[in-house]
């Protein structure tokens, strides 16, 4: 526990709150980087995801590419891009935007796919245009899953942004690498604790947003799942609508 005391001492040390490498500066760098990466990745992924979800076309391609991208090790992509475009912030931005696209894309089209087809058919039947269906039915109903995609993208970006300090002088990962180099365990551990707290805070924020964006009508009509009930219909238990409908 003494090690953790040292780490806590490092986090609270006033010397770490001044100069260019101060803790608040590093936290802001880390957060700003995460935010910007998510915005750029969303700008690319969300329109494509909505198009795939709305038309149902290109789904196979999207699944294949996002699945393939997910198997690629983040550190490998990061170091490769850094060799191509040089040390600095450019490489992490490119690499992390690429990594953030698959989960956002998947969230965008999965959100549309999860919608009850009846709701969309009904919207079309009452005379909504395709644009109205998209903005007033599909996007609101698909939003929770889209936020879920953003949430996993954010987790991935915050985590990999720590590694990005390997190729650029920025973010909280800097403390981990400089602590490793100088064998300063208090600094490494202190930096690690800050990254973990940041990741958990982001997770909490996204979990809250995900709960808030569920449309009110959907939230209230969702029935509690009765797990004990049989999944198989029994004689006399069929829904009334099938009766007299040969």
């Amino acid at each position: 526990m003494n090690i953790f005391g040292d780490a806590l001492g490092w986090i609270l040390d006033p010397a770490n709150y001044a100069g260019p490498g101060a803790i608040p500066v590093r936290v802001l760098e880390h957060l700003g980087f995460t935010f910007l990466t998510l915005v750029v990745a969303s700008a690319i992924a969300i329109p494509f995801g909505f198009a795939i979800g709305h038309t149902g076309r290109g789904r196979g391609l999207a699944v294949a590419t996002s699945g393939g991208l997910r198997a690629i090790p983040t550190l490998g992509l990061l170091t490769l891009v850094a060799l191509w475009i040089g040390i600095g912030l450019g490489a992490p931005y490119v690499a992390l935007t690429v990594l953030a696209i698959p989960p956002i894309l998947a969230g965008a089209y999965a959100g549309f796919e999860a919608i009850d087809r009846g709701a969309i058919d009904a919207a079309r039947a009452v005379g909504m245009s395709e644009a109205q269906i998209l903005t007033q039915v599909e996007i609101p109903l698909g939003l929770p899953l889209l936020i879920g995609g953003l949430r996993s993208a954010a987790l991935q970006v915050v985590a990999t942004a720590t590694l990005a300090a390997y190729v650029a002088d920025f973010g909280l990962g800097r403390y981990l690498f400089s602590g490793l180099k100088t064998r300063d365990y208090a600094e490494m551990l202190g930096g690690s604790i800050l990254v973990i707290l940041l990741a958990l805070a982001l997770e909490a924020v996204f979990a809250t947003i995900q709960r808030v964006v569920v449309p009110r009508g959907v939230a209230t009509t969702r029935l509690p799942v009765d797990r004990a009930r049989s999944a198989r219909p029994r004689p006399g238990m069929e829904p009334a609508i099938t009766k007299g409908n040969p």
């Binding site: 953790f4 780490a7 981990l176 551990l189 930096g191 690690s192 990254v195 958990l200 997770e203």
Partner: peptide
């Protein structure tokens, strides 16, 4: 869910402690 949210690099450093 919370454990999964912990980034791997900091995890590798915190675990030995």
């Amino acid at each position: 869910g919370l454990l999964y949210a912990i980034p791997s690099f900091p995890m590798f450093i915190v675990l030995p402690a």
